Amino acid sequence: SGANPKNLVLTASAATSIVETGAHNGDLTVAVAVFVLVGSCTVVGAVIIHMLGGHRAASFLDRVRQFMITNSAVITAIVLLLLGASILGDGLTGLGR
């Protein structure tokens, strides 16, 4: 999924935000670690739910998967809209400096 254009845009935006903070050494390591944890929490969460919930969890996870498949275009549009609004806001803020 790393080569997915949506994931590349989100990762590039996060990397840019981290670099723009000017973090070095320990702070940079913490920022990258937080990004990785936040980025992987849905996968880790699904694995934990599956391990703890058994057959009930499988049914729940299947419903969530079906919802995301059905609404993937809307989910992608909202995520990219929020990302674009954030980048636009950062750019406009930078113009005022």
Score class of each variant (00 low, 15 high):
Asp62Thr: 06
Asn4Thr: 15
Ile78Phe: 02
Ile49Val: 15
Asp27Gln: 10
His55Leu: 08
Ile69Leu: 10
Ile87Cys: 03
Leu28Glu: 02
Ala23Phe: 02
Asp27Thr: 09
Leu10Lys: 03
Leu81His: 07
His24Ile: 08
Ala77Phe: 04
Gly22Ala: 09
Arg63Ile: 03
Met68Val: 11
Leu8Phe: 08
Ala12Cys: 11
Leu8Asn: 13
Ile75Ala: 07
Val34Asp: 14
Ile75Leu: 13
Ala3Lys: 14
Leu80Ile: 12
His24Pro: 02
Ala3Trp: 14
Ser72Asp: 11
Ile18Met: 04
Leu81Ile: 05
His24Val: 10
His50Phe: 11
Arg63His: 06
Phe35Ala: 14
Gly94Tyr: 01
Ala3Met: 15
His50Tyr: 09
Val47Cys: 12
Gly54Lys: 04
Gly54Gln: 04
Leu88Glu: 00
Ile18Arg: 00
Leu52Gly: 06
Leu10Val: 05
Ala73Thr: 06
Ala12Leu: 14
Gly84Ser: 11
Ser59Ile: 10
Gln66Glu: 11
Ile69Asn: 02
Ala3Gln: 15
Gly53Phe: 00
Leu37Val: 03
Leu82Arg: 01
Ile18Gly: 00
Leu95Val: 14
Ala73Tyr: 05
Ile49Asn: 07
Arg56His: 10
Ile87Asp: 01
Val30Lys: 10
Met68Gln: 03
Ser72Trp: 13
Met68Lys: 03
Val43Asn: 13
Asp62Pro: 06
Thr93Cys: 04
Ala12Ser: 13
Asp62Leu: 02
Phe60Lys: 02
Gly39His: 10
Leu92Thr: 14
Ala14Phe: 09
Gln66Ala: 12
Leu61Met: 03
Thr93Val: 04
Gly91Pro: 01
Val64Ile: 12
Ile78Trp: 00
Thr70Tyr: 05
His24Thr: 12
Gly22Trp: 07
Gly54Pro: 00
Gly94Leu: 01
Thr16Cys: 15
Leu37Gln: 11
Ile87Ser: 00
Gly22Pro: 03
Val32Phe: 01
Val79Trp: 07
Gly96Thr: 14
His50Arg: 05
Gly94Met: 06
Val47Pro: 01
Val9Ala: 15
Val32Arg: 05
Lys6Asp: 14
Thr16Gln: 15
Thr42Tyr: 06
Ala31Pro: 04
Asn4Gly: 08
Ser59Arg: 12
Gly26Val: 11
Thr93Lys: 02
Asn25Ser: 15
Thr29Ser: 05
Ser1Met: 14
Asp90Cys: 07
Ala3Asn: 15
Thr11Gln: 15
